[in-house]
Amino acid sequence: MEFLASLLAPDFFAAVFRAFVPVCFAALGGLITRRAGILNMALEAMMLWSALLGVIFSGYSKVWFPDLPDVACLLIGMVAGILAGLLVSSILAFFSLKLRANNILVGIALNNMADGGSCYLMFLLLETQSNTETLTSFQFPAVNIPLIQDIPVIGPILSGHNLMFYLAVLAVILVYIFIFKTPTGLRIRAVGENPDAAESVGIKVLNIKTMAVLLSGFVTAFGGMYFSMGYMNFFSRNMTAGRGFIALAAMNLSNANPIGTFFASMLFGFCDGIGTRLSTLGAFSTDLIKAIPYAVTMLALILYAIIRARKINKIKSAR
């Protein structure tokens, strides 16, 4: 009973939202490419590089220009992180779209390269392969929303989270508007559903797909930066720990709809939060608990696939 009550505490929501943010950004990134008909497997790579390069640039800009205010260094780091995401996505776009490599293989290769490369870069710059704690870097601040934070029960739950949480929610709305309410979004969806039809009305399929991939890199970069510049202020080896794949699953679950993605990412955050709670209770082994998010994702995938298959069967038999 006490356990259930603790679920309603602001702490728990904070934990849920913390896990939610990177998955949400990455899932939105995956969503944009999925709408263009591409499965983006390189979300991990985008997040790892943006996390590392964000920290490096925000830290080193302070070292090289000591007079710069902290906020400026943070912004420099953010720009670096975004550029990192764009760089990775441009590599993905070039090899899978221009040179027709299988995008799943390129995505996996990019992920492995990011895992190894980020450690290697850390090693080259900081002589260590574990984390960048020796480099002082800056974090996005927590935000206390003035009026809302005073509302009795809900206030502490809604206010006081890291800036990037609110950015993530905003991103969901922006991506929704972009995909469903703008002409470019319509083109992306057209290219995703039927590239030949789109080509026939004059849409340059290659350009649209490339743009979708680059945009995905841009959005996912924020997810990566949250790890090393929001939640923590350093980068550590393989910090993303498979979140990119969870994000893919979340995106799959919601059928590439931003609102659905928001809820799927929340679901994952919830599992993560519950897992941490359960492990502090000591009732279950931490190892099994760590498996919960992945198992739940699989079950959700199965459920979703069953529902979709039934719908398709209904349509087929109605003919």
Binding site: L39, M41, I104, G242, F245, L248, A249, N252, D287, L288, K290, A291, Y294, A295, T297, M298, L301, I302, Y304, A305, I306, R308, A309
Partner: peptide, 19 residues
């Protein structure tokens, strides 16, 4: 159910590692 085998196999891998 036509569930994407890439995602499901990666999820299963992670479950197995932890189990």
């Amino acid at each position: 159910w036509n569930a994407n085998e890439v995602v499901s196999s990666i999820m299963l891998n992670n479950v197995l590692t932890n189990v």
